[in-house]
Design a protein around this nucleic acid. Structure first.
Lengths: 211, 211, 211, 211
DNA sequence: AATGAATGAGAATTCATTCAT
DNA sequence: CATGAATGAATTCTCATTCAT
């Protein structure tokens, strides 16, 4: 099934999605009722159903919004990078700042994904995969120059963003106090060290030492 | 509120918790009904309520079981390590093998935590903190020898286990095919490189090269 | 908490309250189930909850209806009285006839009050007090003329209506066969004798004798 | 069905009944659970069922206890009276003092009777009737001397005790603050005036005046 | 498009009662 | 007699969804 996210949103529709995001973030998708969304959005039940058909669709639409927002930002900010380590740092930096700027979306995307109906799994994977491919292609040149380790495809995201992701999760749920932005440097270093080839790593270590 | 997990469990109680774990894992806590647990456990509704009082308590009890199991294993396997890199590797290795052995518990602990009632947050934090402290103390000696980076407390877990965690999440939800056990080596390397001090890292890099 | 009794009732709402009154009267508030009300009112559970929110509110709304009906009638019929003894007689007479006309409301008001949620105690007292004050003011003139005994405030109702009340309770529950209307004369006399000042009583006694 | 109240009660049985009375008084019979009684009485569910068979029986047993206690006291205190007005006064006095001494029993007997199973109605009526007959016989002599009005049988209790009863109900439920004992005089006067024959009343009025 | 009344399946929880130990 | 685990029917209430206006 494809995403129930119209190209352009009426004010009503935006209001409903915004309300939904807020409530989803507070109570989780499953625990959120149409009535919660109604109260928050000032729309009537009938209107909500008129526009989105059912609850699943609302969640999926919000998810799609978030997904687009996140990946677009990521790609946009990493594209101009002109060397590998900088690209990695920009990646972590953008990821973290987006989370801090959009905590509700972040919670939704990273912590509540499983609650979006499996009906949309295919669509989500497809879209995520497309974005990931674009991002991945940005690193191709450095990969080819032997600056980056060659990993099984499904490890790139975990290795690069896993630490930031894990800390963000703790922070979003209130279990870690450290502002993610204050961890950008450390987390970028970890990402770089994890992804750099032995040669590139040795180089940057000696460069550091000589600084 | 403290955990509703009795010291010793009757057969009935174990059966209920086992059934609950299975269903929670399949459908998520919120979507699981008492009736699901009843069918799976062969206990009557009344009996379930007699022993656990309500659904929240069941989830909390299962969580507590999983928490104890996970951390006990972790500490047990890391304790005998006699040098830093080996300790890190054992940590990742144990973490990953536990997840593969106990996918239901893993899903529950790592992906559904937020669905456990906030009433138990305090108890969970306390217990997790206690375990973490023990584990942390194992690394103290190497920390003092300058082999390990000094990080803000809340970054250790993300930096060391974030990548494994993130990949496990993908794998548990069927979004990554790569068997986590086949990623142990790569993820251990990433963890070591992320946590090693510059000196220790330089050393191990040159050691690698000479091999 | 104020009464959940809307100013104007839709047909649906009236039907629900009427059904509730009937069932409450038959089985008592506590023993009445929403399903009883549903069957009797032909409304769906959802509709009942849509309009009243919960069982307590239904009971409170019915109570409020009864209260208004009873006191309005009482005040209306006593107002035109032009001498004390007649007023007393009208009071007893109206009270008794109302009970015989509205046995369900009567049972509810006089025998089941305690089953209305304490949440509404304040609202009930307030409203009862307001009505009582109006009624009381009707007797002021005779009180000032010295025709009526001056009693502690909380004894007026018991002294005047206690006997009628007690007999009505027995009758409503089937423990007394005597039709309350056949007791009006005797109960009015008792009320008059109990409330009349010594002087007024002596007067009416000699008047009786000379008849 | 006859009362399930054994001639002699074991400690356990007394404890159960006492606990039941207390809880019934607090929450009403219908709302009271076996578990409430269990907690209060320190007996096990099994034990309670062993002794009383079911909840209805407990309520009936408590009711029977209260009934016996009340009427025995009443008859005992009125018997020695040697003139009519004194007998009436003693009646009211005893009634009121019993209520103040035994508020739980009173609440139970006077406000919750309807919640005792209809199965026991017959037994209750029988026993109440027997006691009432005894009490009534005490007034026979004065009745024959023409000192007391001749009323329909079912009006004696309401006329004599209705006001006290009504005020007690208000007081027991917290809706009247005036201590019933401070109303004894006024309520006795009302009872006497209501029941006295015209002649007797005229006499006592003139006696009062000459005092 | 918008509104909100109506529907009814389903979920959590309670509680009287039974019964094996 | 005492205990408390076990049972399952019954009850209240919720909520997604439909539909007439």
């Amino acid at each position: 099934m494809s995403f129930p996210l119209p190209q352009s949103l009426s004010e009503r529709q935006s209001a409903i999605l915004a309300a939904a995001l807020a409530v989803f973030s507070e109570k989780g998708i499953v625990a959120t009722t149409i009535d919660d969304i109604r109260q928050r959005s000032q729309a009537s039940v009938g209107s909500i159903y008129h526009h989105f058909g059912n609850k699943e669709n609302i969640a999926a639409a919000v998810f799609a919004q978030g997904l687009d927002h996140y990946w677009t930002r990521l790609i946009e900010r990493v594209t101009p990078a002109d060397h590998a380590e900088q690209a990695i740092t920009l990646l972590i930096d953008t990821h973290i700042r987006w989370i801090v700027d959009q905590p509700d979306f972040a919670r939704f995307l990273f912590a509540r994904r499983e609650a979006v109906s499996p009906d949309y799994d295919q669509a989500i994977r497809q879209r995520t995969g497309d974005y990931a491919k674009v991002l991945f292609s940005l690193f191709q040149p450095w990969q080819k120059q032997g600056l980056l380790r060659r990993l099984p495809m499904s490890l790139y995201y975990p290795v690069l963003l896993g630490p930031a992701q894990e800390h963000a999760r703790l922070w979003l749920s209130g279990r870690a106090a450290l502002d993610p932005r204050d961890a950008i440097e450390e987390l970028s270093r970890a990402a770089w060290r994890s992804i750099a080839s032995d040669a590139a790593l040795a180089l940057s270590l000696s460069a550091d030492r000589s600084t």
